[in-house]
Amino acid sequence: MEEKNTMNPGVKSCTCGALVAPFVVGLIGALIVGWWLFPPLLYSKKLQPVRFSHVVHVEDGGMACSDCHFNREDGSFSGIPNTGKCAECHAEPMGEDPEELRFVEEYVATGKQVEWVRYQVQPDNVFFSHAAHSVEACGSCHPEFEENPRELCNKCHPDVGGSDSAPAAQVNRITGYTSMTMKMWQCERCHANENHFELTEEDEAKHIKPVTRANNGCQVCHK
């Protein structure tokens, strides 16, 4: 900067060199803004209206994931249980936790539904079938999912299964989507992969029958 301020019209090459520095400053500044400051600004944090502990339910309560998150008989997925489902156990407070007390009073007693914040929710024009992406279906080729089903869920959903309190959701201020809302290219990693369901001879010997063939038809995922 010293040099830049020195009036020396004879040394023109110095000017070029002197311009590099502000360029680099601008560049680095932009990178800092773009990669560190911008993302948190774009998202607002949204907390769950009721503190919910998966640990208490799964480890202490001995519940299975599928007690609440299951495929209905008609093929649709139950998603997050409604107040009625919670009230099956929490008709009266089961413990001493003041949050549970509040939940029973505010929601169970009145029948009001909890506006749970969802980390992974797709817009109306997307159709996603949990039944087609089930542990049985995916696990038939990827045994790791059969061993640890949560690993499959966590391909799209945050790993809250072992959490004591649900994390805040990052909600995009422009779109209203969460930071976890999957983009089409993410679906296409499998759907557009022609070999995704190509059965090997080995598979056939094992009588593996994929529940369906991968299909990248537009309406497979859109409604």
């Binding site: 002197a18 360029f23 680095i28 773009g34």
Partner: peptide
């Protein structure tokens, strides 16, 4: 002080940098 040229250079750097950020 910042002269006109260096300011433009700074902006150019910022612009190029922005292009390689998610903004």
């Amino acid at each position: 002080g910042i002269d006109r040229r260096s300011f433009i250079s700074f902006l150019a750097g910022g612009a190029v940098g922005t292009l390689v950020t998610p903004i």
